[in-house]
Write a protein that binds this DNA or RNA. Structure first.
Lengths: 233, 233
DNA sequence: TTCCGATTGAAACAGCCGTTTGAACTTCTG
DNA sequence: CAGAAGTTCAAACGGCTGTTTCAATCGGAA
């Protein structure tokens, strides 16, 4: 019962009560993404959110608690699995499913509509995983990846458990994440790349095409994936 | 003349004098990569390097100066372009060139031999670019990417200037960087992945195979890459 | 209104952390 | 050896920063 107060407001509460709470979350997400956990002072966050310094301690039980909640909030705002599953027509050809998946992924990651700090925040977690990453992998990433695996398996013409599915799944995701995670370098290499909606669609199309070629080319030649170095050592 | 003392030792000095200096650089690189600039206390660095707390101020004029030098040091240790160009047989088939490129890339990025903190440090620059990133792109990344583009162009059967080259080049690099940049999540999704040398070779082989299939499949169908949204807007 | 819990506010606290200090020690030069 | 310059050391300083405190305010229930 010691955390009764904060728990009550963190779940679902009367909208008025959550006012400064969400303001804090959005402000924190922005600056955490920009400067990282250690690079940010809660005084800055509170100033940006128009809240008192004590508010973060009251609502989130400290800076770390705030960060944890920001991460959840970020992923919650990002592409939801449900949204994806709804968007994917169940009885369409696998290539079309892949197209929907990739395009949705790109849109939710790069398009300006959503809180734009999602990507940076998650990229930070990749480099410097916090305790919150485990929750994130379990609740958000695993189901999305499972969905992708089912599509890949269909395209390869094998069962989901086939070892090749893992690797071609990685090929798909890697080509999606690349454009977000390496933006600074990419924009320096290609100054004419502005990440407009049209360009994002163009890139997504390329990824879909590339992966389709790769997987169709690999069909029936998947023996090499049967023996995997195990890596126990 | 105010910085005469430190300048004298930073350039080239008698080996005995640089002892704690390089020890400091290596220790700092390790922890900076792991926890980021703000997440690191110089007391930790000094403890790891077996140096006194005042040493970093004496040799580098402060924490920031140390970070700056660490970044230079990291670039210097990273995969050299020359090394790559030497390793690639000039008159081999393009697919073999790609194989050498990808394998060398993976080895220099993931294998334990080199200072293993290079990758993380550079990944941090992607998220939170410092002033040093421009130098990095110019001196290290651009020439490597140019080399890759020449290989890709050969495999696609087009000139280097062809717009498709850019995108397939990205497909190759993205699948390489993925395994380094997203290690934490990947290892959570696949606990049996230990990044042993054998596994790294396995992954690199997959990437080469995938990209080969994709590019061979795309040969002759590159019309769609001719019209690019320009993105001026 | 009056009471009570939830929330906000200003100020102070506690301790961490980059930096500085000044002396001791080493090494080289004359 | 004497002296100087370069380097290392332990200790302390200064201020930044997450947290706490406690009083003030708000909002609804009796």
């Amino acid at each position: 019962m010691s955390t009764a107060k904060t728990d009550k407001t963190s779940d679902t509460g009367h909208p008025a009560e959550q006012d400064t709470r969400v303001r804090l979350l959005e402000a924190a997400g922005e600056v955490f993404a920009e400067r990282g956990f250690h690079g940010v002072q809660i005084r800055d966050i509170c100033a940006l959110a128009g809240a008192n310094i004590a508010a973060v301690n009251y609502h989130f039980k400290g800076k770390e608690g705030l960060y944890r909640e920001v991460l959840k909030y970020a992923h919650h705002c990002a592409m939801a699995v449900d949204e994806l599953q709804v968007a994917i027509p169940p009885d369409a050809p696998a290539e079309q499913k892949l197209g929907v998946f990739v395009h949705t992924f790109f849109r939710s990651m790069l398009s300006g509509g959503r809180p734009s700090w999602n990507g940076k925040l998650l990229a930070r977690e990749m480099i410097e995983p916090s305790a919150a990453l485990d929750d994130l992998v379990m609740s958000e990433i695993t189901p999305k990846f499972a969905l992708l695996r089912s599509i890949v398996a269909e395209m390869l013409g094998v069962a989901i458990e086939h070892p090749a599915v893992r690797w071609f799944g990685a090929s798909v995701i890697s080509q999606c994440l690349f454009w977000e995670h390496n933006k600074p370098v990419i924009q320096r290499l290609y100054p004419d790349l502005s990440y407009s909606d049209e360009q994002i669609r163009f890139i997504a199309d390329h990824v879909v095409r590339t992966c389709t070629f790769a997987m169709l080319g690999a069909r029936g030649k998947l023996d090499e994936y049967a023996t995997w170095p195990e890596g126990k050592r």
